[in-house]
Amino acid sequence: MEYKTTLTTCPYCGCGCGFYLESIDGRLVGTIPSKTSPVNKGKLCIKGWNVHEFVQHPNRLTRPLVRKNGELQEVSWDEALDYTADKLRNIKEASGPDSIAFFASAKVSNEENYLLQKFARAGVGTNNIDHCARL
């Protein structure tokens, strides 16, 4: 029997609320906002309160899907990345770099967002980069 309360940071937005994820034998069962977190002081929004629901949800995608003959099929990461790179390259060659836009994310780290804008600007050659909240 293993009951754990793991202090972690909410993955939803850039606020970074602190909470404990309750788990029993490796399965998440609850979210408890941290009272000592200076960001949220024991409070959460509705999304934060329900974080434990999605992590191990059976409907969650865990592998990339590519549509083949009208059907989504599971593929390897290598195949998915090659497919995406090919498509982006084709679009850029056909319509120019400004035909592509990038949405950064509040759910990732500063470093990952830096990489995304670097890829957009230096790799693809566009300034079309914005925040996911504008989607």
């Binding site: 009951y3 309360t5 404990y20 408890i32 000592t36």
Partner: peptide
């Protein structure tokens, strides 16, 4: 008892702990 559910101080934070 198999475990005691209380509060723990860890890395500057206080939270539930078994």
């Amino acid at each position: 008892i198999k475990g005691f559910l209380g509060l723990r101080s860890n890395e500057g934070h206080i939270g539930p702990y078994l």
